[in-house]
Computed example of a mutant assay.
Amino acid sequence: MISFTKQGAGKPIILLHGFCETKEMWKTFSVQLSESHTVYCLDLPGFGESLLSSSQLNLEEVAVTLHEWMEEQKIQKPIIIGHSLGGYVALAMAKLMGSELRGIGLFHSTAFADDQEKKHTRNKTITFIKKHGVEKFIESFVPPLFAVQHQERLEEEIATLIQYGKKTAKKTVIVYIEAMRDRKDRFEVWKTFGGAKLMIVGTLDPAIKIEASKEHAAFVTAYHELEGVGHMGMFEEKNKCLEIVKAFLMER
């Protein structure tokens, strides 16, 4: 079962949250974008109020589940914008569905697979969670996603994200870390996807290296770098990100 919200009328937009996040992170975006579009915000399987039916999964299986959900909801030709993990899922959906999608957006995400350094970090994270639990992990994981200069101003938002993240089951956290670690390189999908492509990156993103992000720019419809922003531009530069997404959608 996929838990989701639906707002507005017009062409469909699907917003996918990132790792240990929920659909609630998109509340402001949903309200604003629903003035011109039908906006769906959903919980990926295992997060928020959506159930995880398997103890193992890969991103291709998540893409199939969301495709089936789209068919149930009779959603046709959407633009899918995903934050971080949500972007990985959007790329898996682009591989699966191709021209059935009107466009995709990577919001602090990448088409590249994990390198060996990143895989090693993910393995260490799994070990930490098994030993110390999800709550302790989330408390240390969320704040550094924001650039240091934004953390005090966004203290309330950070606390809310921590609160939602702590509710995630240990099984869900671990299987998604494994799925991200083992995900396929989707750069060829990014290059050849025929629909519109949006990319929003932070110059101080600790999770997605800016040098890697720049390699996507030659194959994108709209590419935007947020100066002095970490991994959470939808909070760190909310108004600017809203303007970027609105402009991208209005041209489609």
Rank of each mutant, 00 (worst) to 15 (best):
H150T: 05
G194N: 13
K118S: 03
V148E: 15
P143D: 04
F19Q: 07
D115K: 10
V245R: 08
K124N: 09
A217G: 01
F141G: 05
L51F: 07
G230T: 08
T121Q: 14
T28H: 10
S34L: 12
K197V: 12
N58E: 14
H216S: 00
Q76S: 12
H224K: 15
E139M: 06
V142K: 04
K167D: 12
E236S: 01
I210P: 01
L96H: 04
I138G: 02
I81F: 00
T65N: 02
S36T: 15
I14R: 02
G18H: 13
H67Y: 10
K167M: 13
Q56Y: 08
S99V: 04
W26V: 12
R181D: 09
K77G: 00
S30F: 01
V189H: 02
I14K: 00
Q116L: 09
K197P: 13
P206G: 10
F235E: 06
K74P: 00
S84F: 00
K131Q: 15
E24R: 11
L52A: 15
V173N: 09
G105C: 12
N58R: 11
C20S: 14
A63N: 05
P45F: 07
M199R: 01
V62F: 01
K246V: 07
D182G: 03
V175C: 15
T168F: 02
R183W: 05
I13M: 04
V62C: 06
F112S: 07
Q32K: 14
L226A: 03
K209H: 07
H150K: 13
S140T: 14
G165Y: 05
G87M: 07
H132P: 03
G195V: 01
E135D: 13
